[in-house]
Nucleic acid binder design. Structure first.
Lengths: 345, 345
DNA sequence: TTGAAAGCGCTAACAC
DNA sequence: GTGTTAGCGCTTTCAA
């Protein structure tokens, strides 16, 4: 039953031409629906196409075709399997598909070298454009590619050392809102728990946190600013330690979806989930099902991905305006965890 | 500031050769690290490469290169943004990356035409192989492609009307286990809530459900078998109706992750989450955080994706054995929701 | 309406 | 070591 013996090699356009008794160019005309072909001949060609199982080789065509577009884009995400990345991916796919463009996607895992390796792999395959959630803090290596005519859009995080179209969320404001929300509910000892310090979005959210504290005249206590967690598991130990300490906070701002989950687990373990207020950043589909339900600051991920793809295709369509920098608003949704009053010690 | 003016066109290998005062072939040797090049000349070439910002065009190379491999595979998923699909994607990426292979991914949304359109787009770009979670029930259109030497692996669901390597989970057994688990906890009226009837995995899980009931001498009541839900929202109304009916079940087997979420919401709305037992199929990262914690039958998604990619690459490496059909075990993890005893009416 | 020839950017084969 | 020639599968140009 196992076949897949190299079978006969794939038919080429020339073979189709020979079988149909037509010229190469005529087959090309039929296959590409250019018209101006005698219907009878066209039929013969179509027959040959089916009997040989001919599939045009687009790669070969792109080589000569004017414009040289491959109808392909490259997408660099933090981690394909993170819900945030996956949602961006889907939104971008939905804009690309109607245009007949397919997308390469890859995970960077916050690894600078991986960023370069993947962009290289994509560029070498001549993608028409690139959408990047960058890992590193120097994208100048992309400038020549951009100058050569490949549109590049930065998503979720802006580029460093180069200019390009950008789509980001209101991270600083979101962090501010989250923190202010907790302050308004009476908290003055609010911890910040975040991802790697180097990540732009985290830094922004932390900046918003600091601004809110400052505005409300609350001194920042660096001992309850915890960073460097990239999975639910990693946040766990530090949180337990902090919550068992002398000056534990009465509220927590968790600055990313995975960190939020880790925080919840730690609070549960200490049975503090109803004592300590919690606001998270990023959406979690089960937010309403938890107890207490999760108060979250969410990004409009679908819009972010959609806009990024639109910017890319506008450039591909020849837009020559200055770079655009879109900022997509975040929303705070109170559900319970963020409205817990501070406990009296 | 906006550049992106078509800039000078991308440099070709020939231009590099001219600038370096070397021949085309020598540049090719240097760029591909073939060795056997005078270090001095090699340096000149490298300099020319950097000054011109030369990037090899892999597509062009693949055209002539023996084997004709594009170092590219195509991945057809149900929906890129569904956690199940996203996890498969990631596992496949992790196997592909070390081989220098990048992956095209696309969503089918259970749409047969989309399946054909996307496979077509991938094949026309000469992917080296295809991994498919099929939407339709006829993949015979792929046979010629397979015969032409493109390995095709079916993942999560087997192909119809053709033979190929396959990786699936123990869906029937998983459904059986879930149902038997509920029966062992005293239930005899167990509802089944599922996705579209047409989907292979759902049908298998339902078959397992029926087998468990039969084995335990419980008559199947078709009125509490609900199908056709593809989002949490869709399941909602029917569930509310069923749970308010005369002969409502004392337990529910929810056969897919999104359906499970919809079921939980419906039970909460009726405040029945602690009265009605629930076992879900597919993983939910927050399963342990819900109240009650969710008893789930989970697939080993990472292994499924990994194995599928391995099968694909084995074929690409020339394996000519018969098709393999791997079955990856599922696991039932009791956490609370599935161990609720039946309520006395 | 049709086709022959050239060439896209690169690698293979075979010189030198 | 190095270069020359042919040619991958297709589109373009231009002539018939």
């Amino acid at each position: 039953m196992s076949d897949l013996g190299q079978g006969r090699a794939r038919a080429t356009m020339k073979e189709v031409a020979d079988l149909a008794g037509a010229s190469l160019k005529t087959v090309s005309r039929v296959v590409n629906g250019e018209g101006n072909v005698n219907p009878e001949l066209a039929n013969k060609v179509m027959d040959a196409v089916t009997t040989l199982g001919y599939r045009p080789n687009l790669q070969a065509g792109f080589l000569r075709r004017s414009g040289g577009k491959t109808q392909t884009i490259g997408l660099l995400l933090e981690n394909i399997s993170n819900p945030f990345s996956a949602a961006l991916h889907r939104a971008i796919e939905d804009v690309s598909t109607p245009r007949g463009v397919i997308v390469f996607a890859g995970s960077l895992d916050e690894d600078v070298e991986r960023e370069r390796a993947l962009t290289d792999a994509f560029i070498s395959r001549r993608v028409d454009g690139l959408i990047i959630v960058p890992a590193g803090n120097d994208q100048s290596y992309l400038a020549s590619e951009q100058a050569a005519g490949t549109p590049i859009v930065f998503l979720d995080r802006p580029p460093y050392l180069m200019e390009a179209d950008t789509v980001v969320a209101t991270n600083e404001e979101g962090g501010f809102d989250a923190t202010l929300h907790l302050i308004r509910h009476g908290h003055r000892r609010i911890a910040y728990v975040g991802d790697y310090e180097s990540i732009y979005t985290g830094a922004q959210r932390l900046a918003g946190y600091r601004r809110a504290l400052r505005q409300e005249g609350i001194a920042v206590d660096e001992s309850i600013i915890l960073q460097g967690f990239h999975s639910p598991h990693q946040a766990h130990a530090s949180l337990i330690h902090m919550m068992r300490g002398e000056n534990r906070p009465t509220a927590i701002f968790a600055s990313q979806n995975l960190v939020t989950l880790g925080t919840i687990r730690a609070l549960r373990e200490l049975n503090l989930q109803h004592q300590i207020a919690l606001v998270g950043f990023d959406d979690i589909p089960e937010a309403d099902l938890l107890d207490p339900a999760l108060t979250l600051v969410t990004q409009d991920v679908a819009t972010m991905g959609e806009r990024a793809a639109q910017l890319l295709f506008e450039r591909l369509d020849g837009r020559l305006e200055p770079f655009k920098h879109l900022v997509i608003p975040t929303t705070l949704t109170p559900r319970g965890s963020g409205e817990i009053a501070p406990i009296e010690d």
